Amino acid sequence: MTVDRSRPDLDDTTVEGLGRLSEALETMEQARGQLYGFHQHSGKADRLVQEAVELFREAGHSQLADDLDRDLVGRNVIADRWTFQVVEDFDDNYWSVFRAFDERARTELSGGDRHVLEARMKQRERTAGHPAHEAGPALSE
């Protein structure tokens, strides 16, 4: 017996709310990826500055090398923090809470089913019987 992931037992407003929350989480996942990109790019930039410092020293530009080394290499990107601390704080205090609420909403409202809104869209938009429009796993005809 196949379970219909489009959850016909749920009202449209609940399904739309689950879909909106899921979309919000997906958007936050993209933002998190950009934050991790910022973290990695910042670290790479710091390493490149360190290389520039060594090259300036080698070329005899000691004062500039010393100033860069003292004032820029290893500098906090925001008050009291390097980017790894920003990422950790974000993960611990926002992202994990966001994911927990998404899971809670799915558990309480749809028995844990994900992408119910999309499953309904698939049922509505596919052409039954077409070989490239199969219902797929856990989606009844």
Rank of each mutant, 00 (worst) to 15 (best):
V15G: 05
V3F: 14
L68D: 03
S96N: 06
A31L: 14
E88C: 05
Q40P: 02
D102R: 02
Q63I: 10
D113A: 15
S42M: 14
R5A: 06
A119M: 07
E51C: 00
H41D: 12
T27K: 04
R120T: 03
R75L: 10
D69C: 10
A119Q: 03
N93T: 12
S96R: 04
K122A: 08
R104A: 01
A119V: 03
L18F: 07
D92Y: 02
W82V: 11
G43V: 00
D89K: 12
R99L: 02
R47P: 00
M28E: 08
L48M: 15
L64K: 09
Q34G: 10
S140H: 09
P137Y: 07
E88I: 07
E26H: 08
W95N: 06
L25P: 05
R120G: 01
D66T: 13
A119Y: 00
L72D: 02
D12R: 14
A135Y: 06
R47H: 12
D69L: 14
A105T: 03
V15F: 02
V73P: 03
V49H: 02
T13W: 10
I78W: 10
T2G: 00
V49F: 07
S22F: 00
P131C: 08
D11E: 09
A65D: 03
T27I: 04
I78F: 11
L48D: 13
T27G: 06
P137G: 04
G60P: 01
T2S: 13
S110Q: 03
S96Y: 04
N76E: 15
Q40D: 12
R81N: 09
G33C: 01
V86K: 05
V87G: 03
T14I: 15
Q40F: 09
R81K: 15
E103D: 15
A119D: 01
M28K: 05
G129S: 10
D67F: 09
F84R: 15
D11V: 05
V77W: 06
E103L: 11
G19T: 06
Y36G: 00
W95L: 15
A65R: 05
L21E: 04
M28T: 06
E125G: 00
S110L: 02
H41R: 12
R126I: 01
D12A: 15
R70K: 15
E103F: 06
Q85Y: 04
H39L: 02
W82Y: 12
E108S: 08
E58S: 15
H39I: 01
H115D: 13
D69W: 09
V73E: 06
R104D: 06
F38I: 07
H133G: 02
D66N: 15
L55R: 13
V53N: 05
E141H: 11
Y36K: 14
E54Y: 00
E23L: 07
S22W: 06
W95F: 15
V73W: 02
R120Q: 07
G43R: 09
I78G: 03
R81G: 04
G33T: 04
Q30E: 11
L48S: 13
T107C: 06
R20T: 15
A59G: 05
Y36M: 13
L117H: 05
F98I: 08
D92N: 15
G129C: 11
G111C: 11
G37Q: 11
R106G: 00
G129L: 10
R124T: 12
E118C: 04
Q40A: 11
A24H: 10
H61C: 07
Q30G: 08
G111E: 08
